[in-house]
């Protein structure tokens, strides 16, 4: 049985650019998939196809057991979408925004009102509930947007770069909300260009670049795929590079690299901390004096660079906008075009 979100061979072209070039996805119910990729990789296009906003040129997608192309309206009843920027009406109060969305999800006016009250409490917006959302901070607007996506407690959620443009504190808060949500059994597809975010929130990660999924797996699997752990040793004296290299070769699972000028030896290993202890003992026994030694695990950054040949994020400074940044979406569209 396909997962709560399932896609097969999605292709979407804008002019000459293949924004999606045969994307397959499978997200089991109750799990989080992090769709990780740089600007213009096709993340937003994938989300737009899965949320019925865009028809793919070819391919198939099933969300909550419903075919996206043939039953779009039924799909819409089962999903919540929190887009790339806070899609709330700034002249409406937080409460009015949520009530409107509830009614458009076909709830009765009374049910929508009650639900709006609940969500405002839960998202810590009760005090600001009756102020136009124009007066909200970026973080509050984001929370309101997320609340709007949760009005009917949809079983499947899509979040397109939910924390882009938020400061670290607001990001942390939003992460907590998302974790709570997932603990409640919601299936979530989350796009992000922050590797840390994918590491933190997602069970599985699909790395997407130029419209293709170029790697997938858990965060640990991806890291292992990039080369796994390695021991790095900096010897005190350049004379000792040779004996130290001989010792490390005994433990190594691959090619040992030696950097003469920094006196650093790096060797891929398997065996973790226990092995590190042995390495230290042997070096000591041979009288090799060391300045630094450590077991290094690759970060998702390493994974990303080794997979795509370029770094993932432009840095929060460049991307950090005011939180309702239409321009950011435009940027991704342009990049996709």
């Amino acid at each position: 049985m396909p997962g709560a979100i399932y896609a097969e061979g999605l292709v979407k072209t804008f002019g000459k650019v293949r924004a999606l070039d045969g994307v397959d996805l499978d997200v089991p119910e109750g799990t989080v998939l992090g769709l990780l990729g740089p600007n213009g990789a096709g993340k937003t296009t994938a989300v737009r196809v899965l949320t019925t906003l865009l028809r793919p040129d070819s391919g198939r997608a099933v969300v909550a057991g419903l075919d996206v192309l043939h039953k779009p309206n039924e799909v819409r009843r089962s999903i919540g979408l929190s887009g790339q920027f806070a899609a709330v009406d700034e002249y409406l109060t937080g409460r009015e925004n949520l009530q409107m969305v509830g009614q458009l999800y076909q709830m009765s006016a009374r049910a929508a009102k009650a639900r709006a009250g609940e969500l405002l409490e839960r998202f810590n917006l009760a005090e600001a509930a009756d102020r136009p959302s124009k007066t909200y901070s970026g973080g509050m607007r984001r929370r309101l947007d997320l609340a709007a996506a949760l009005v009917v407690s949809p079983p499947v959620m899509f979040m397109d770069e939910p924390t882009t443009g938020l400061d670290p504190r607001n990001r942390q808060q939003l992460w907590e909300v998302i974790q709570e949500l997932v603990a409640g059994g919601t299936t979530l597809l989350l796009t992000t260009q922050y590797l840390e975010e994918a590491d933190h929130l997602a069970h599985d990660i699909a790395v997407i670049d130029h419209g293709r999924v170029i790697a997938r797996g858990t965060s640990d699997e991806l890291k292992a795929q990039t080369g796994g752990e390695r021991v790095e040793v900096v010897v005190h004296d350049r004379q000792q590079l040779t004996p130290a290299t001989e010792i490390l070769n005994r433990f190594g699972r691959g090619e040992t690299t030696v950097e003469q000028h920094t006196r650093k030896i790096t060797v891929p290993v398997a065996g973790g901390a226990k092995l590190l202890a042995e390495v230290i003992r042997d070096l000591d026994a041979q009288g090799v004096e060391i300045d630094d030694i450590g077991l290094r695990r690759p970060t998702l950054d390493d994974v990303f660079i080794s997979l795509t040949g370029h770094a993932a994020e432009a840095g929060p400074g460049e991307n950090g906008n005011n939180g309702n940044g239409g321009p950011d979406a435009a940027k991704e569209m342009e990049a996709a075009l």
């Binding site: 737009r48 039924e74 999903i79 887009g83 899609a87 969305v101 458009l104 076909q106």
Partner: peptide, 18 residues
């Protein structure tokens, strides 16, 4: 459209012309 509200509306199970 610019503010993403049309996307939100289009992702809701509401009448297309509304």
């Amino acid at each position: 459209m610019h503010k993403g509200l049309i996307d939100r509306f289009r992702s809701l199970p509401m009448s297309r012309g509304a």
